[in-house]
Write a protein that binds this DNA or RNA. Structure first.
Lengths: 332, 332
DNA sequence: TTGTACGCGTTATCAC
DNA sequence: GTGATAACGCGTACAA
């Protein structure tokens, strides 16, 4: 591959001049500029970003860390990040961590090794202290899922309030026995959503029954299993609030499979409004996060953080909204 | 951040020695090694990959280009790529192209600019000539979706045969009026699947009716629309072969929404065995690709290609298999 | 066994 | 307006 020196030679100028043309320095005369551009064209020259990055200590790449790509919740967030990044001359690359702490650290090496200028977490398995330490050294933004007080910029929603509102909708429909299906792992969003669930019940003078609170992971099959478990309780719930669409869909699947429940369907509420929610039968009532805004703001935070490392740490909670579809109805 | 020079100074040795320790050169005595390692520890030193990459002309990163992350079909492929890459000291980063040619080219710049050592396409919007040109300059592998004769290594399945087999299953169930729902864009897989569909009909002495062959994109809504269109035909099909689970699910959704079809359901066959297929109601009959093997082999091809650019171009088609579930049944 | 010095490709600071 | 040259951080041939 051609280097800047080759171009300089071909154009009969110095490498300095080539660099100036490449970077739009307007001191060069149009004649020399023309010569250089022709040489660039002819040699199909592309600047080596390693050399450039080495010199400038930046590569204009942002690393976006996803726990998995199998959740369509991330699609629009990532897309809006991309668009926002482009405005500032950045582009993004994605690392998939599979919720594995080692894998995460491996990807974060790209910060130390200067391959990327910053990293945005959609979810993290790090401890608060570790994350805080990393954020001290590098531009880090947390997006949607987050670890509290980790000393890095965060954009999310009010998970407690969102869950509270969703459970209230079930109560308004007439439900009194409402189960909570959450996460074994204490993700912040999961913890807060449970708190919202509990508050909604309490404020409606409904006793919180610990046996109606069960936990698993975010897979369809976990949802199915949790459903079976709940239905084995003597006096099963008439409604279930879940912390994820995937769990809710797993439950709906289980309720369909088991004929016993087809005549007395259970109201099920999801979370995140993934593409699954509208396409499933029955369509899922769920909480929608402003994905576009979340992604855009996260990237804005990243860019401003890179521009000024001394900025105070910011925490923003954007507005969610509830979407009523077919999977919630009055108790039968 | 500390540089190799800082480490050298702290350890009281030369940068050369530090470099040797870092890269496991066994000529250094254990005493000096110890000194260096302690200095590395103390300064929390991480080699700058830009410097290293500049020197060695490689970054040990592979770019994986996805058209979208909202298709769970890619999840396992990407994961097996990761695992295979790790064996050779590589790691992967993902670029999402949104099936946009410009975006693709933008990401491919990372090859020219030396940020990654190779790129694997899960789908490409480039023309054959352009792709061929790029593959001449850089290690390129096509995976699953591909452009024929583009002069780059390819791992996929026999799409024609897979479609042929799936349509045959419908014929065996007794269907004679079988529709084909494909893609407006002439993706290789889509074209081949249509050929397989046509061959299955012909070999079963069923006339191919062009009005039963319709096309759209891969979205749920496109699937729904295509279903509506097919059902408006005077003598509608009793079965539909689709080239993607997403299309099939969109169709099932539409058939549920429209009460007219609930009593005379249409058999629908999907493609790819995404996570949706087993969770949907009815569960989807579909063609499964060996995702793990596809991803593993693609990465093996990449690594061997990097090791030897002169290797002959390879094309491998792995074995698919058909999965019968609830969405296909005899005509009613 | 270890150190010196050069080069990888680029940008930026000087002179001219 | 342009050119020579010193960095950036690293690996390695060569010398010691």
């Amino acid at each position: 591959m051609a280097t800047i020196r080759d171009v300089a030679k071909a154009a009969g100028v110095s490498v300095a001049t080539v660099s100036r043309v490449l970077n739009g320095d307007d001191v060069v005369t149009s004649v020399t500029r023309e010569k250089v551009e022709q040489a660039v064209q002819k040699l199909d020259y592309r600047p080596n970003l390693l050399g450039k990055g080495l010199r400038q200590s930046q590569t204009k790449k942002i690393l976006v860390l996803l726990p998995t790509i199998s959740n369509t919740f991330y699609t629009r967030i990532v897309r809006s990040m991309e668009q926002e990044a482009q405005k500032s001359g950045y582009s993004i690359v994605i690392g998939v961590t599979h919720s594995n702490r080692e894998k995460e650290l491996e990807y974060l090496q790209m910060l130390d090794t200067r391959l990327v200028d910053g990293a945005i977490f959609l979810s993290s398995e790090q401890r608060k202290e570790e994350l805080s330490r990393i954020a001290q050294k590098h531009p880090i933004v947390q997006c949607s899922e987050y670890i509290p007080d980790a000393g890095c910029d965060t954009v999310t929603i009010d998970n407690e309030q969102a869950a509270y509102g969703a459970v209230l909708k079930l109560i308004e429909l007439g439900h009194r026995r409402i189960a909570f299906a959450g996460s074994e792992k204490p993700y912040t969003s999961a913890v807060l959503r449970e708190q919202g669930y509990r508050r909604a019940l309490k404020e409606s003078s409904i006793a919180v029954e610990e046996q109606l609170i069960i936990k698993g992971d975010y897979s369809f099959s976990s949802g199915s299993e949790m459903f079976e478990r709940l239905m084995q309780i003597q006096d099963p719930p008439t409604a279930i609030f879940t912390i994820a669409d995937s769990i809710a869909v797993g439950m709906l699947r289980a309720s369909y499979t088991n004929e016993k429940f087809q005549k007395h369907p259970v109201a099920i509420s999801g979370f995140d409004d993934t593409s699954l929610a509208q396409i499933y039968v029955p369509a899922l009532s769920t909480v929608a996060q402003p994905r576009r805004e979340i992604g855009t703001l996260a990237m804005q935070m990243m860019c401003s953080r890179i521009a000024d490392r001394q900025l105070p740490v910011r925490f923003v909670a954007l507005k969610h909204h509830y979407i009523k579809r077919e999977s919630t109805f009055p108790p039968k």
